[in-house]
Design a protein around this nucleic acid. Structure first.
Length: 510
RNA sequence: CGCAGGGUAGAGCAGUCUGGUAGCUUGUCAGGCUCAUAACCUGAAGGUCGUUGGUUCAAAUCCAACCCCUGCACCCA
């Protein structure tokens, strides 16, 4: 009865949504949908990380309260999800009462168990940047100008014991090859763990920062934002409730490579271990989108607004591009040129045009009704065999998160339908009076329609709306179950075809 | 320095884990077709798979060494 529990990282409430946020959500959504189509009960959660210094600073800059600031950002991100057709089951915010309670509960448990201790330390502190800095931050022996005055201060804080669990963590990662995907990321973590790790400072004194969750055992401090943020995963699984085991352990934490080390591969497993909670099954680590070869970052200011693309080309085209171009784990380059090429050649010319010509032929030669497959020959057999062998391969590629390969394969099959239609040339058959040609036309249309139906069914996780549209053109309901729908059959006989439709109009000017 | 990733037709990428005729898209050239979104189909040209060595009957793939590019302060998926 346990659900498949899938999470994205929660977005930090500091700045606007960009392509990276969009990608992670689309990836998680695609995975969720693909599991649902295989009859799994999915719980998909995303959300917002709202505490910490940066949020406090952004709010001050905008001249609003922290909570108002977060409410606004939450709206932005929820809008993004809606635009991208992200079907999450829960949207968590770290300012929710339930979450605060879970964080305090965990802190108290760790404190009682001796996993948290108080210590003082001193270091160099930048008053302007409001954080500790290191000697190595100096450029040419001088502090960067935006650090302002740098002074030595000493501070007392609470620390969470990481180091004593280091060997346990190494053993755990080595004995659980599925824990970090793809494999090379695990290697990276193990490299990191070759050096001793420091205990984690999990508090901030209120004289520096008040925007956080107060420590349950010391009201002079708030909780460090990462400690707070990571706990969202168990809050979202109803940690305080009996139903916790319906969700936990999480099956997939979907995260970017930047927050693997140390947050998700070091802090989080040790936190859970120290709390006596089972670890998530898999950290699914994706790469970054570069923008025309350059690293995308807030500071560089080259943020591609995903919403712009969506409005111009449609959400499914955008989802298709991201899933088709990215090899999970690697970085990938986003360029409008390539987006246009994918849009035009894959979506408009191959898929869209196939749908368009099929509908038109159906009306022109078969009165808009799909006939029965009566007469088949080598051409039909070959096409059918191609699809029959491709379907399980595509599904298993999906299950391995190799979406780029699944889509490549699927579009090769779509091309094969175009070639098959060319081979049969119903427009020629229609001109002749030869016995049996009418049947052959019916067969061609029926087989092609069946292939288009399958294409729509298999595209559903990536392009849910398009999938549903295509199916409705063929007189079918949306697919909800691959076991039933992802099979080559003759399910469409008697179905009424819709009038010709342009699914992906050519967009002349980029 | 170290660690990680990448280096495959003009361009952009996959394939490398699990060795066996080098694949996809785009671009170019030549044909075909006209149902269709100036779309579709067929064929051709184009690669010493970064370099050198090793293992093997067989290496893009495994091993070793080296070269080049990228990332590794904060922020950021």
């Amino acid at each position: 009865m346990k659900k498949v529990y899938i999470t994205t990282a929660i977005d930090y409430a500091n700045g606007k949504p960009h392509i990276g946020h969009a990608y992670e959500k689309i990836l998680a959504d695609t995975i969720s949908r693909m599991f649902r189509l295989q009859n799994l009960d999915v719980q998909f959660m995303t959300g917002l990380d709202e505490h910490g210094l940066k949020v406090s600073q952004s709010a001050a800059k905008a001249g609003v309260s922290e909570q108002t600031h977060c409410d606004n950002i939450a709206e932005d991100f929820k809008k993004l999800c809606k635009k991208l057709n992200i079907k999450y089951d829960r949207y968590i915010r770290t300012t929710e009462d339930e979450h605060k309670q879970v964080v305090r509960d965990c802190l108290q448990k760790l404190y009682d168990g001796g996993q948290i201790y108080k210590a003082s330390y001193s270091g160099l502190y930048s008053k302007t940047a409001e954080r500790f800095v290191l000697e190595k931050d100096k450029i040419d022996g001088k502090w960067p100008s935006d650090y302002g005055e740098v002074i030595e201060i000493s501070e007392t804080n609470y620390f969470f014991r990481l180091r004593e669990h280091q060997q346990w963590l190494i053993d755990y990662i080595e004995s659980h090859p599925k824990f970090i995907f793809p494999d090379f990321r695990a290697k990276q973590v193990l490299e990191f763990l070759k050096d001793p790790i420091n205990d984690l400072c999990i508090s901030r004194p209120k004289n520096r920062l008040t925007w956080g969750i107060e420590l349950p055992f010391d009201s002079e401090y708030v909780t460090y934002v990462w400690f707070d943020a990571l706990i969202n995963y168990i809050t979202g699984a109803n940690y305080l409730d009996k139903t916790f085991t319906n969700y936990w352990p999480a099956d997939f934490h979907i995260i970017g490579k930047d927050i693997l080390v140390p947050a998700h591969a070091i802090y989080w497993p040790i936190m859970l271990y120290a709390l006596g909670i089972e670890l998530p099954t898999t950290l699914l680590v994706h790469g970054w989108w570069l923008i025309s070869g350059e690293k995308m970052s807030k500071s560089a200011g080259n943020i591609v607004n995903p919403l712009e693309c969506v409005e111009k080309f449609g959400v499914d085209a955008f989802r298709y591009y991201l899933m088709r171009e990215m090899t999970i784990g690697q970085d990938s380059d986003f360029s409008f040129d390539r987006f246009m090429t994918r849009y035009t050649s894959d979506l408009a010319n191959d898929l869209g045009n196939l749908v368009s010509r099929l509908l038109n032929m159906g009306h022109r030669y078969c009165d808009g009704i799909i006939g029965k497959v009566i007469k088949t020959d080598v051409a039909e057999d070959n096409l059918q065999k191609l699809w029959q062998s491709a379907i399980p391969e595509i599904i298993s590629l999906y299950n391995e998160f190799a979406f780029h390969l699944a889509l490549e394969k699927l579009f090769l099959c779509i091309k094969a339908v175009n070639a098959y239609v060319e081979d049969r040339s119903p427009w020629k058959l229609a001109k002749s009076n030869v016995e049996g040609h009418k049947q052959l036309i019916n067969t061609t249309i029926a087989i092609s329609a069946e292939c288009v139906r399958l294409a729509a069914v298999l595209l559903s996780p990536v392009m849910p709306t398009t999938s549903q549209q295509i199916l409705s053109f063929l007189g079918c309901p949306a697919t909800t179950n691959w076991n039933a729908d992802a099979k080559f059959g003759n399910l469409l006989a008697g179905s009424k075809l819709r009038e010709q439709v342009i699914l992906f109009p050519k967009i002349v000017e980029a």
